[in-house]
């Protein structure tokens, strides 16, 4: 019984993390049709930025936990704006209209460049920024000790998901974006500045990536290569959910998160395959992913 509760809690926490990581990827794909290989690097940049800021903030031994959360989010947004602007203005805007696969390769090149750029900026030594993680303490749920920070992550994921959904479904800007998603040319003919929409979307996607990294940083040790590790996971989530669909990413994250927690508790030997196994299974049954529709409204 305890194990079932544990699966539920662990699975949900992991799913929230997966969703945060995948949200930016799916937003960018939905609007821009770019499967962004460099998304993992954005995640890593967010983690590094947050970890170095937290390290600096607590370096003199004082500092309040409350401030550190603001710092985390502030760093993520700042890093997202800077990196997003640089990449979009400096590179991607010259590439629009190219083949979808070619865009994947461009972002793959970007990934290689950013991995080394991070190494040049932050070095290879691990960054440890645990203060926000431990500051919240832990709760006991049915005999299982759970970190409050991890529980808070669930809340953040829900808020981010709802905000994205509300933004797309309930605001004017969201309607314009949906028009772009639906038909780029027609939207353009109707007077929508598609390129501006792309810029905006890319900034938001990037910031979601850095936010996921910044929120993860306190619970891990930030080392080179963490970005590469999350890309395939994020891809799996969005492919399972249906590329470009926010609801899909949420459901995909839950499905993968719970499956993995189940494997860890009841069949640890299958843990290594579970993500790819579920992904293959879903695609075999629904070739477009759970919420993917060929031409219908995406995101």
């Amino acid at each position: 019984m305890l194990s079932f509760i544990a699966v539920l809690i662990d699975g949900t926490i992991y799913a929230s993390w997966l969703f945060l990581v995948a949200a930016g990827l799916t937003v960018i794909y939905g609007v821009m049709r770019i499967l962004n290989m460099a998304h993992g690097s954005f995640y890593a940049i967010g983690a590094y930025a947050a970890a170095s800021a937290i390290g600096w903030y607590f370096s003199d031994g004082t500092g309040s936990a409350g401030m550190s959360f603001l710092l985390l989010i502030g760093c993520a947004i700042a890093a997202g704006l800077v990196v997003g602007t640089l990449v979009e203005r400096g590179l991607l805007r010259f590439m629009y209209g190219r083949d979808e696969i070619l865009m994947v390769i461009i972002t793959y090149a970007l990934l290689l460049i950013l991995e080394d750029a991070m190494k040049l900026i932050w070095g290879v030594n691990p960054y440890f920024a645990y203060q926000p993680y431990t500051a919240l303490g832990r709760s006991t749920i049915a005999g299982l000790k759970v970190s409050n920070y991890d529980l808070a992550l669930i809340g953040v994921a829900v808020v981010v998901g709802l905000a994205l959904w509300g933004w797309l479904e309930r605001t004017n800007l969201g309607k314009i974006l949906r028009a772009v998603i639906h038909d780029r040319e027609v939207a353009s003919a109707m007077g929508v500045n598609v390129r501006r929409m792309f810029f905006l979307t890319f900034i938001i996607g990037t910031t979601l990536g850095t936010l996921a990294g910044a929120l993860t940083a306190p619970s891990i040790s930030v080392v080179p290569g963490i970005g590469v590790e999350v890309i395939v996971l994020a891809f799996a989530v969005v492919v399972v959910g249906g590329l470009g669909s926010i609801e899909g990413a949420a459901v995909g994250a839950l499905l993968l998160g719970l499956s993995r927690a189940m494997a860890v508790h009841f069949a640890p030997q299958f843990e290594l395959f579970v993500i790819y196994g579920v992904m293959s299974l879903v695609l075999a049954i629904r070739p477009q992913g759970l919420f993917g529709r060929t031409l219908a409204r995406k995101i």
Binding site: L2, D10, K145, S221, E229, A261, V264
Partner: peptide, 20 residues
Amino acid sequence: SQMPKVFQGQYGAEISALSV
């Protein structure tokens, strides 16, 4: 005995399984 993927970084489920 838990064997998570190398460089996974997040061990929530494994820690629960060990704690239990």
